[in-house]
């Protein structure tokens, strides 16, 4: 890990440890906006982290942004960090101005875009109700990516939530298509979508880490039959498997982050979303099995991690979606080139 990444890791960790409170999460879940957390986050310039240094970024490119997303996942931060960071990045890359305030992203790459009485319908847009506007990603000419800004004044929302209570709103734009569209060349909408999938994989790695830590702490503390339940081999082995799944998911996410901008970027992201999706069932399932009934309560914080894990594995493509695509890719390679492909990853 390079020095800049460590600095990001430490600063963001401190920020979220202090500012992510039960109240801020409750505010989000009851439909409100956690203003104090957002002000600190935005005030620190963290939404611009993936931009170049001249534009206020950390000079790490997207990778620093993903470090931040993982830590946000660890703290269950009630903010759309993936959308805010990548949305800012997309605006910057397309040359559109970056407005003040919270922004979110809608991927309208899958044809044909939804329509409702001649108005563009964007389903399940994170935090659209609270955003200043939506960055809409559309297929551009010649495989490029179109980026357009839709201001809050130009859309209505129908409020929805995911399992974790995070806003996932249907957005109805007042026109058939956004007014101004700028292109990002040499970047396909498919690639843009994969960046969001990696964002969820990074968040899963963070939240799964927290779930594991809670599980170990609880197993060492909770006593039954005269000793901590963590002394029982049956419990130990379950937690060992839980940890294996987490570290596999974490390694896959880190590998994909390390391969951003390389020819293997897409395949590594696919692997990351597959492995993080696979890990969720076991990590969350074991966490709840070990915690027993207390972990099933709203009051106990484990649900903050597990409800997020169950939501995030589905968003931007679940493991079946990515497996099919990666599988088709491998089948097309055939036996001869498969091993070459596997070893080309990491040189």
């Amino acid at each position: 890990m390079n020095e800049m990444t460590s600095i990001i890791e430490e600063s963001v960790n401190d920020l979220f440890a202090e500012e992510v409170t039960p109240e801020s999460i409750e505010t989000m879940e009851s439909g409100g906006f956690p203003e104090p957390l957002w002000s600190t986050f935005d005030g620190g310039g963290w939404t611009r982290i993936a931009l170049s240094e001249e534009d206020g970024g950390a000079g790490t490119g997207l990778s620093g942004g993903y470090t931040l997303m993982r830590i946000a996942g660890y703290h269950a931060a009630p903010l759309p960090v993936v959308e805010a960071i990548l949305g800012t990045y997309l605006l910057s890359a397309s040359g559109l101005p970056i407005p003040e305030g919270l922004l979110t992203v809608a991927l309208a790459d899958q044809s044909p875009p939804g329509e409702n009485n001649g108005r563009l319908l964007l389903p399940r847009v994170p935090w659209a109700r609270h955003a200043r506007g939506v960055v809409v990603v559309l297929p551009g000419r010649n495989g490029s990516t179109g980026v357009a800004w839709v201001d809050r004044d130009s859309y209505q929302v129908q409020e929805h939530r995911n399992l974790a209570g995070e806003p996932r709103d249907d957005v109805l734009v007042s026109s058939r298509k956004p007014a101004e569209e700028k292109l990002i060349h040499a970047t396909s909408t498919e690639q843009v979508r994969s960046w969001f999938a990696l964002g969820r994989a990074a968040q899963i790695a963070g939240a799964a880490q927290k779930a594991l830590e809670r599980t170990i702490a609880y197993a060492n503390e909770r006593r039954q039959f005269g000793r901590p339940i963590g002394k029982f081999q049956a419990i130990q082995h379950q937690i060992a498997v839980q940890a294996e799944q987490l570290y596999a998911a974490r390694c896959a996410a880190d590998t994909a982050i390390a391969h951003l901008g390389t020819p293997q970027e897409w395949e590594c992201i696919a692997a990351a979303k597959i492995l993080s999706g696979e890990a969720v069932g076991i990590v969350a399932g074991t966490a709840h099995a070990v915690h027993g009934a207390i972990g099933f309560t709203k009051e106990f914080a484990l649900q903050l991690d597990t409800r997020r894990l169950w939501s995030w594995r589905e968003e931007y493509g679940n493991e079946d979606h990515w497996s099919r695509r990666l599988g088709e890719f491998c089948l097309a390679l055939g036996e001869d080139r498969l091993w070459t492909f596997l070893t080309a990853q990491t040189g």
Binding site: C251, A252, E267, D320, R324, G327
Partner: peptide
């Protein structure tokens, strides 16, 4: 029929190698 299975195994293999 096999694509999903192949993709899942390939992802695991890529990651095991990296680990």
């Amino acid at each position: 029929i096999g694509a999903r299975t192949i993709g899942r195994l390939a992802a695991q293999l890529m990651n095991l190698r990296q680990m």
